[in-house]
Amino acid sequence: MSPASSHTHRPPALAGLELLASAVVLVDADGTISYANAAAENLLESSLKALSRQKLAAQFLNPEELDNICAQARLHKFSDLRQDLTLERAGRDPLHVHSIVSVLDEPAGHVLIELREHLQHIKLDREERILDQSQVNKELIRNLAHEIKNPLGGIRGAAQLLEMELPPLHLGQLREYTQVIIKEADRLQTLVDRLLAPHRRPHIVGDVNIHEVCERVRSLILAEFPAGLTILRDYDASIPEFRGDKEQLIQTVLNIAHNAAQALSARIEAGEAQLTFKTRVARQVTLAKVRYGLALDLHIIDNGPGISPQIRDRIFYPLVSGREGGSGLGLTLAQTFVQQHMGVIECESRPGYTDFRILLPLP
């Protein structure tokens, strides 16, 4: 076996580590990565093949700390040592992780390092709260929409009857008022229908290719914004098809991408607006309290002004919008459709960078 291939070989003795949620990395005597489980590949955002040519310490902002504790481990100064480290991430905020370093008798000089995100448990708690809140929102919306829908029909009908009874002498002047009532009743009816749409429509399941979904949305966005906006594609062609509702997923991605394009209006005028569709496979992911071996990891990224901190924690709530004249339903519907596919949707935003991340289980 060549040295290159031995670096990427996964020893059978370590097969059980592939099932762990924690990232586990094995480094050799000079600090080069010789093994990383699936969770570590996910955390370090790279494959074992690529990682096996790198020093683990080089991944961190404080590499000397990791080198120091690994050296102490090799001298058998302790059985295991815990240390907080800061992981570098290209284009994103650094990630704080907690490391547990253990020395191995075999192979000689090798050290086993377990890495855990500090915020992992907070993230799981937040996802649980989001699911609970989403269920409450759905019930509230459904009940409220039905309560509004019933009197709306009566208001519109009464306005039509009133218009028919208007005296001919004043018909033109007074008809303007009855038309306002009718048009506003129709507008509210449309809003109510949009609120109820995700609960009425059957879930049509078929084989879905996520890149076909992205390409469909890309063509729709470019048709509306033909100049000043560049849509980049960063696809992982190995992602398999999965069972889902293609139309719902198109609507989900379209709602997010359309919101992004509207937020990019100033950059579009300057000709420097950028939207990116990025797909990856995530491994050993927990979605809605269920553990999946593989998941689709879809990112919709823009270089717009970012989401206002005042609404950042409420963007998926119904009728919350950061845009003047927005209905505040686009992201609510997107979240509903993603949850119907047993997935989760997250958002990271700062000025110049907004990333909506959709995670869906894969077969």
Rank of each mutant, 00 (worst) to 15 (best):
R200N: 05
L191Q: 03
G153H: 02
L19S: 08
L43R: 15
N303Y: 12
K123T: 13
D234A: 13
G322H: 02
Q59G: 02
N62G: 04
I33A: 08
P94C: 14
R74H: 10
C214H: 07
E41I: 01
D302S: 05
G352M: 05
P240H: 04
D125I: 00
P3E: 13
E224T: 15
L169Y: 02
P240C: 04
Q284S: 10
G271C: 11
A71C: 12
I69R: 04
I130G: 03
Q189T: 10
E184W: 00
A288W: 01
V285C: 05
P351Q: 08
S265N: 10
V97I: 14
T276I: 15
P167W: 12
S327W: 08
L48Y: 12
E128N: 05
A158I: 03
E114Y: 04
A261H: 01
N62Y: 06
A40I: 14
V217F: 01
A223E: 14
I315H: 00
Q310C: 03
V285W: 15
R129W: 14
N150F: 11
T8Q: 09
P318Y: 13
Y35Q: 15
E128T: 11
Q135S: 13
D234M: 08
V217I: 01
K49I: 06
P151L: 00
I221W: 11
E139M: 15
L188W: 06
R194L: 05
E215P: 00
V213W: 07
A197E: 11
H258I: 00
A58G: 14
Q179F: 05
G293C: 06
V27T: 15
Q160M: 04
P168H: 07
R218A: 00
G172C: 07
A50R: 11
H118G: 09
P351C: 09
T178M: 06
